[in-house]
Design a protein around this nucleic acid. Structure first.
Lengths: 205, 205
DNA sequence: TAGATTGTTAATCGATTAACAATC
DNA sequence: TAGATTGTTAATCGATTAACAATC
C-alpha cells in the first residue's frame, strides 16, 4: 500500500499537515476534504486521493478527525520523531535560521552550526557556538546526522555538499542559489527567493 | 506563440536562467540542451520543448549562445528591468532578507521595509529605515509597487496580505508558514523550510 | 562533407478530476 | 431514515519523452 508513492504526493503532505495543525490551533476537531481543499486551493478529490495512498483516515459522512489525521501524516512523513540538522554557514541567512524558533515544534532541531570564517568560529549565533568546518564530518558521523541546511555562498555550496554527503548526510536543504550534483540516494530541496520572484514577474502587468 | 504557457514551464525558466548565468560566469559562451540538462538533472528534450514555447533560440549543430539566451529569458520573465519590492516584517528573517545582496543583481530592489513594532520603527535594518505599517498602503500606491515579501508571524500574514493586495500588490513571496487566500489575479509563492525538510524525511532510513 | 544539435511531432506516461457506490 | 462525505474507479487532461527531419 505504501509502495512507490509519487513524489508530488509526498510534497503535498507537509502542506496538508501545516493546514491541519492550524485548524487544530483554531480549536476545530473535524474537517472534510472539501474544507481542506478550499483552504489550500486544491480539489477535494486530490486530497482524498493523496491520503488514500496511505490508508483510510476518514469516515464517510463525517470527514477526518483532525488530531488523528495529523498523527497519521506525521507518521507517514517520519516527523513523529525529532531529527537533528546541521547548519552550514553563519552569515546573515545562517544566523536567521539559527534563531528561527519554528524548527523544533515541527520535528527538527539544529544540532550544530558550522562556518569556516575565523571571525565567526567560536562566536555565539542563536545559542550555538559556531564550529569550524574542519570538525564537521567527524560530528556528523558521530551523531549519525542525516539532514543539513546549506547557507554558504554559491561558490562554496557544491564543495560543502560533497563533504556533507561523504559524512553521511542524505537530505540537503540548499539556500545557495545554485544547483547541486548529488548521488541518487541523496535528496535536495532548494530555496532561492529570486527564482520564486522571477516566476511571478512573468505574470505582471 | 506566447499564449497560455503552462505555469510549470514558467517555473523552470528562472532555474535555466540561474544555471546559464553561472555558465557565463565560468567563461563559457555556448551550451547545449544536453549539457544544461545534465547540470540540472532534467532531460534535454524538456529544455528544448520549454524554450521552444518562446521561440527558436538555438542553432542546429551548435547549441545556444549563452549570453543571447540569458537576454531572451530575462525578457520573457520580464526581469530585464528592475522591480521594486516591499518587505513586511523586520524580525530575524526580515532583517536577513534586507541584508541579502543577491536581489539587485537579479532584477529586484527592496524599496521599503515595514514593521509595526514600536521598538523597530525608525531603526536601520540593512540600510533601510523601518517604517510603520500605517504608511504601507500609501507608499505602495504612490510608487505603484507590485511585489511584496511577507516575513511576519503566521497569525498576521493573511491580514498583511489583504492590505498589500488592496494597495495594488499582485505578487507575494510568503515566508510565513501558512496558506494565503488571495484573488485569482494575485500570485503567491511560498517559502517554508520545514515543509521542504518534511518532504525529505519521508525518504530517510 | 560529416557530425552535432535543434525544434517539433507523435507516443507515452503520469497526474488530476469526475462520478458514484459504500457507508457513517 | 436522509444527508453527507469518504475511498476508489474510470475518464480526462496535461506533461514528459522518444525520435527524427531539418540544418548549421
Amino acid at each position: 500500500m505504501t509502495a512507490n508513492i509519487p513524489d508530488i504526493v509526498i510534497g503535498r503532505l507537509p502542506v496538508y499537515l501545516r493546514a491541519l495543525t492550524r485548524l487544530a490551533q483554531e480549536g476545530q476537531e473535524v474537517t472534510s476534504s472539501h474544507e481542506l481543499g478550499q483552504r489550500l486551493g486544491i480539489s477535494s478529490a486530490q486530497i482524498r486521493k493523496d491520503l488514500s495512498h496511505f490508508g483510510g483516515f476518514g469516515k464517510q459522512g463525517t470527514g477526518y478527525q483532525i488530531h488523528y489525521l495529523i498523527e497519521q501524516l506525521q507518521q507517514v512523513l517520519k516527523v513523529n520523531q525529532e531529527w537533528e540538522v546541521v547548519l552550514v554557514g553563519a552569515g546573515d541567512l545562517g544566523s536567521a535560521l539559527a534563531h528561527y524558533r519554528g524548527f523544533t515544534e515541527r520535528g527538527f532541531r539544529i544540532a550544530c552550526v558550522f562556518d569556516n570564517s575565523p571571525t565567526k568560529i567560536g562566536k555565539q549565533v542563536g545559542g550555538f557556538a559556531v564550529m569550524s568546518l574542519d570538525n564537521m564530518q567527524e560530528i556528523i558521523r558521530e551523531r549519525a546526522i542525516k539532514i543539513a541546511m546549506i547557507a554558504v555562498p554559491a561558490e562554496k555550496a557544491q564543495e560543502v555538499a560533497d563533504r556533507l554527503i561523504e559524512a553521511g548526510v542524505r537530505a540537503i536543504l540548499n539556500y545557495a542559489p545554485m544547483n547541486l550534483n548529488v548521488p541518487t540516494d541523496v535528496h535536495v530541496q532548494y530555496i532561492d527567493p529570486v527564482v520564486q520572484l522571477q516566476r511571478m514577474t512573468y505574470y505582471l502587468s
